[in-house]
Amino acid sequence: MLNFKFWSVITILIPLNELQFYKNFDELAKDILEMAKETMPDRLIYLTSLTKKQQIILKLSESNEKIAINEGMVIKINETVCNRIDFENNAPLVFEDMSREANLDDLRQALVAANINSYLGIPIILSNGDTFGTLCAVHTNAKKINKKSITMLQRIAKLFSYYLDLERLAYRDSLTGLYNRQFLYKYFEESSTTGGALLFLDLDGFKKINDLYGHETGDLVLREVALRLENFVQLHQGFAVRLGGDEFVINLVDLTSRVEISKLADLLLSRLSTWDTQLEAFNLSVSIGIVLYPAGENNLLKVLLKNADNALYRAKANGKNGYQFF
């Protein structure tokens, strides 16, 4: 078995383009807020989703003219109180009187504008440790928050995380955590109106690793490839998919410039051909087939994948570790 270092642990946050495919999300979110409201009836309760850069307010228990929080609001992550929650230890964050908290001085202007002075933030964590977001309860005045209320909201958040886990399983690859084929087809059925590019990736030299060291080591390599792809798409507008085996797809959204896509393809080639000394012996790299699709048209994924596969075949035939446009 090969022994090599991974770059880091992969953490995948659930984006909005995945949530829209979840069954009964709106209905269950409403039920979760109603249960929390019964526990803390005098507070505004809301659900959020977090990314590395921003917080999205998903659902409110009710409209509140006194508190400047609205559904669909997007807040920079460094400008939100929820960013102070200890997600690693799944610990609630409690501020009974925010006006007395000196460590919130950098958020004071935003808190005054929102008219919030009491805050309870409960982390929503998936079973694999990934962060979804928060369940929050706020008030315009300083308010006591008892332990019973905190415990109840933690249980409610946990129930919601179970639902998210079940939905997530339908659209994620169990080995790598990337999106699966089902998500890709669902996306093109409902959301592919902005145009973009499909990059069909196939690893070069991967079969040798499986043959010599077994599938357990091969799985470790696939997870590392997935990590690098996920880090790549987090820097660009798109998402990564594992089709199966050592085949992957990257969908770049709203990007149709061949020049820009070529630059990104070169970056991918570099990221997936640089390994430690043990893997270098296998000449592990990637070949890429690229197909563009226009905005505003009925883009059939089956056709796009076939065309991208044809381009991939030409990239392989030209010596591998390269890319070709369809």
Rank of each mutant, 00 (worst) to 15 (best):
G195V: 09
G244K: 09
A157N: 08
K306E: 14
G238P: 10
S262R: 12
T194H: 09
I67D: 10
R168G: 03
P41Y: 06
R242M: 12
D266H: 14
T48Q: 03
E167P: 04
I209R: 00
Y179R: 08
N141M: 10
L178R: 03
I85E: 05
I85F: 06
K148R: 14
K37E: 10
D26S: 09
L13E: 05
L268A: 08
L93Q: 11
R271L: 15
I75N: 12
T193R: 11
I77Y: 09
L153P: 01
P15Y: 05
N117P: 07
N103M: 08
I12A: 09
A114Q: 13
R228G: 02
F325I: 04
F21N: 08
F232Y: 12
F326C: 14
I14K: 10
N3D: 07
K158S: 13
D202A: 02
N318K: 14
S270M: 15
A295C: 11
D276C: 12
L267C: 12
V138D: 03
K158E: 15
F183K: 12
L47I: 11
D211Q: 06
N146D: 15
L44H: 04
M35E: 07
N210R: 01
N17R: 13
E88L: 14
G195I: 09
V303A: 09
S174H: 09
N283C: 05
G121S: 06
E216L: 15
N299A: 11
G196Q: 02
L159E: 10
L107V: 08
F183A: 10
A68I: 11
F25W: 07
R168F: 05
I32T: 10
G289M: 07
Q324N: 11
F160Y: 12
Q234K: 13
Q278T: 03
L135C: 04
D97F: 06
S161G: 11
D202I: 00
Q234H: 12
E27L: 11
K143Y: 13
F206S: 00
L220I: 01
S61C: 11
P41G: 04
K59W: 06
I156H: 05
Q109G: 11
T151Q: 14
S285G: 08
L104S: 10
T217W: 00
L201Y: 01
L120I: 06
A317M: 08
N117Q: 11
L164E: 02
I67H: 12
L305H: 03
G177L: 02
R228T: 04
E190R: 15
M40Q: 03
K320H: 01
I250P: 01
N89K: 14
N318P: 01
F232E: 10
K320R: 15
M152W: 08
P41S: 07
M40C: 05
A226V: 04
